[in-house]
Design a binder for these strands. Structure first.
Ligand code: SF4
Ligand code: SF4
Lengths: 137, 137
DNA sequence: TTTAAATGCTACACGCAAGTGGTATTTAAT
DNA sequence: ATTAAATACCACTTGCGTGTAGCATTTAAA
């Protein structure tokens, strides 16, 4: 929070894919279903493909599938791939020089929440996004 | 996290002010001390002044002071004033339609962290930024 | 009253994320 | 072979947060 729109899109797409039993997903299908802009989604998927998260199949009847098991893909992997995750590790005041040893009055409370977020993102996998409820995409 | 740079600047400035016993702060002084761009800081302070957080004194020997007691100014007030805080209340996937009642698999874990952040920001005041350690601005 | 030191205002420039357009390439069905 | 349906690529545009420039206004001191 606040993730970039690109990260949102990526997580939304992969979350949808893991919750569907379709075998291969065409860009057009994803675009219409998930309200992600046409060319933007294509570029994003090509990127995720190059990074090894999804596999793209060209030509007629082509589309995208997972390139590896979804329980080996962490949310932080995706975020890091599409926007970089380091900015979420930083200081809430934008400082880079100070440390845990010499914290300002904000640091302890803030760092705790920040660390929870990082831990959440880097321990939750795409397959954990599988829901037993009806999805509302 | 990630706050906008403008919010960072605002918090940094007010944090510096509450930790200093100077009575009035000129823009030039803040600019040099806090590494915030010249005109950008002035515009920001004028904005904070219009919103009632600081009071500006024009003319020679002018500058900025707190317009009200710093323990009545919450971090969320500042953030809301300069960039809007609603975006931090949203979904990590960018959805707006679903509720706590019908959550996706992410929601509970994520909402907990998000709520902690919101609570932290809306219960911590500027005066709590007062530090007994040497500051490193 | 002139000057200097301060804030206020407005318009413009820059950088990057987000979004668009057009064309090339791949592949299966006919 | 031709066609249709799909991805890949590249350049461009748009929107917005950030930063800059210049001038106007206010006020205290000399
Ligand atoms: S000590 Fe304060 S200023 Fe330094 S990183 Fe922590 S929150 Fe930021
Ligand atoms: S239920 Fe899931 S998609 Fe809906 S707001 Fe919560 S995290 Fe976002």
């Amino acid at each position: 929070m606040r993730l970039s729109k690109t990260s949102e899109y990526a997580l939304r797409i992969l979350s949808f894919m893991i919750n569907s039993d379709v075998e291969i997903f065409s860009a057009n299908y994803l675009i219409k279903t998930l309200n992600v802009p046409d060319k933007y989604l294509r570029r994003l998927m090509t990127n995720l493909s190059k990074k090894g998260f999804v596999k793209s199949v060209q030509g007629r009847d082509g589309g995208y599938t997972f390139a590896k098991n979804a329980d080996s893909i962490y949310l932080s992997d995706i975020i890091d791939a599409v926007e970089g995750i380091d900015k979420y590790r930083g200081c809430i005041l934008g400082f880079s020089s100070c440390s845990d040893d010499n914290p300002c009055a904000l640091h302890n409370k803030y760092a705790s929440i920040r660390d929870q977020l990082i831990t959440f993102l880097s321990t939750t996998t795409i397959s954990e996004l599988k829901s037993n409820e009806a999805l509302k995409f």
